[in-house]
């Protein structure tokens, strides 16, 4: 059996890549994809722990998390599309009507 540390390492790397992307990328769609990466990193953790503990709660959590992530993307893409319609860009650095 693959040891638990492998799964945790994989999820930590995924999480770090996602966090890096959220902080550095300019395009709103890419940022949304990076957030998905981070959510899936957490899901890997849950599944690994659930298999390791022989406990079903972790798997239930993942199903919930996937449903939530899908809803978030549905709303998120709609909001980005609306931004594109009103300001003609999805670049997060170009939107600065609101500050201080």
């Amino acid at each position: 059996m693959i040891p638990l540390e492998m799964f945790l390492g994989l999820s930590a790397i995924l999480f770090a890549i996602g966090a890096y992307g959220v902080l550095t990328k300019k395009n709103g769609i890419v940022v949304l994809m990076c957030i998905e990466l981070m959510l899936n990193a957490a899901n890997i953790n849950f599944i690994a722990f659930a298999a390791f503990f022989n406990d079903v709660a972790g798997q239930v959590f993942v199903i919930m998390a996937i449903a939530v992530a899908a809803a978030e993307v549905a709303v998120g893409v709609a909001i980005l599309l609306n931004l594109y319609k009103t300001s003609g860009t999805t670049d997060l650095e170009e939107i600065n009507v609101l500050r201080w």
Partner: peptide, 14 residues
């Protein structure tokens, strides 16, 4: 509103 929603979405997702 469009800009506020995008900011809220990105921060909220994070």
């Amino acid at each position: 509103a469009a800009e506020a929603a995008v900011k809220y979405l990105v921060i909220g997702g994070l």
